[in-house]
Amino acid sequence: MSIEASPVRILWIDTAKAYGMFLVFYGHFLEKLSDLGKVSAFLQFKFIYSFHMPLFFILAGYLSKKTNLNYKEFFRYHFTSRIIPVIFFNLLAMAISIPQDIFLGSLHLNSYLFGLINLVKGCPVYNFVTWFLVCLFTVENIHFFLSQYLNKSKQLIIFTVILFLIGWLISLKIEFVTSVTGIGKNFWFVHESLVAYLFYQSGSILKSWELFDEKRTFQFFILLFTGLIVLFTFNLNTDPFTVNKSAVIMAMSSHGNLVLFPLTALAGSLFVISLAKLTPDYQIILFIGQNTLILLGLNGLFFNFVNQWILSLINNLLTDSHLVVFEACSLLTLISLVLCIPCVFIFNKFIPQLVGKPKVSGPLLKNLL
């Protein structure tokens, strides 16, 4: 997710990340519409959430490389490229929230102290969308240590499956997240990282198999095959979930069925990746894919301050049909992404060190690495 680029970018990965980021924006509009009573919005929400976050973990695993860094160097790089952006976007959300609370007469300093304490615990309550970066940071730390001691790929795969089972069981027994303002037991998403590591490692395995180096006809086959799997399995995943909504929500450690969850997640991710492989290298799509970290943080601001307000205004104008919900959420997603573009340019130009580019220097801050 970091926009710290290697000398040669893998363009289809940028395209896949762009599709994933579209689904993040789109899915958060669906979530709000679902809360307002739109049944068709919930079904689309369940479909997208069954695979869109595993996709990002798979792509991160695909890009992972063996490193000669010692742990101090490894920690410093990943902290500055993952956690510094989390801190920045959460402080930005707090800076927006304070004047809003003053205007509404609902300012409570204790809530901001609560937010800062939880940020130290790895729980970004004021920009909860950035949970992914925290979880990815923990996943990468797990991978660093496991890869040091498990030299054989079979050992690593077996241990990955064991960690997944442990994480899945823990999520059933302990409620880590009750609401965005009610996080208590969650600590650096360690529990969810055990689950997410399965997808991270899947990305590494897919790279070793060179599955995406195959010809276009093979990609068409994967696209069709995985698309059908997702279509016929996502709504079968009905139990057990750890939140009221019967849908996969990794941020809240809600996964559902032990078999259907990873099956649908892997199939959906492969569908998006195959689609990306078949997509021409359009500059606007690549731009989105190359700036997903910034867009993730900005989406948290939309989710907190904009989405509910907009959808409350237009909810009565929308009929409860899949087509109407699709059109409305797609339009709102596109508008949101366009509105983010100036911020992407400003952040990249003036404070790149705070948004995933720790090696870049100036103009306001020195490089962090």
Score class of each variant (00 low, 15 high):
A5H: 15
S6D: 03
R9A: 04
R9C: 00
R9H: 06
L11F: 11
I13V: 13
A16P: 03
A16V: 04
G20D: 05
M21G: 00
F25G: 00
Y26G: 00
E31P: 00
L33C: 07
S34G: 15
S40F: 04
A41L: 14
A41I: 13
L43K: 15
Q44F: 09
I48R: 10
S50K: 10
F51G: 02
P54N: 11
L55Q: 06
F56N: 08
F56Y: 14
F56D: 01
F57G: 01
I58Y: 08
I58T: 07
G61H: 06
L63S: 08
K65I: 00
K65R: 15
K66L: 01
T67P: 03
N68W: 07
L69W: 00
F75P: 01
Y77F: 13
F79G: 00
F79N: 04
F79K: 06
P85H: 04
I87W: 14
F89E: 02
N90I: 01
N90M: 04
A93S: 13
M94N: 08
I96T: 05
I98V: 15
P99R: 13
Q100G: 00
F103N: 11
F103E: 13
L107N: 11
S111T: 12
L113N: 08
G115E: 10
I117C: 08
T130H: 04
T130K: 08
W131T: 08
W131S: 03
F137L: 11
V139I: 12
E140D: 03
N141A: 01
I142R: 09
I142T: 00
H143Y: 08
H143E: 02
S147L: 09
S153I: 12
S153T: 12
Q155H: 14
F159R: 09
F164D: 03
L165A: 06
I166K: 09
S171N: 11
S171G: 03
I174N: 07
V177L: 07
V180A: 12
V180Y: 15
K185Y: 14
F189V: 01
E192W: 09
S193I: 08
V195H: 08
L198M: 09
Y200M: 07
S202P: 08
W209E: 08
F212P: 02
E214H: 11
K215A: 09
F218N: 09
Q219W: 12
F225I: 05
T233Y: 04
T233A: 02
D239E: 14
P240H: 11
V243N: 14
V243W: 13
S253V: 05
V259K: 08
A265H: 12
A267L: 06
L275P: 00
T279C: 10
I284Q: 14
F287E: 05
G289C: 04
N291R: 06
L293C: 05
L298T: 04
L298W: 11
L301V: 11
L301E: 04
L301A: 04
N307Q: 13
W309Y: 15
L313T: 07
I314G: 00
L318F: 07
T319E: 06
D320W: 13
D320R: 14
V325R: 11
C329S: 12
S330V: 00
L332G: 02
L337T: 04
L337W: 09
L337F: 06
C340Q: 15
C343G: 02
V344G: 04
G356T: 05
K357W: 03
P358N: 10
V360L: 12
S361K: 15
G362R: 14
G362I: 05
L365D: 01
K366D: 02
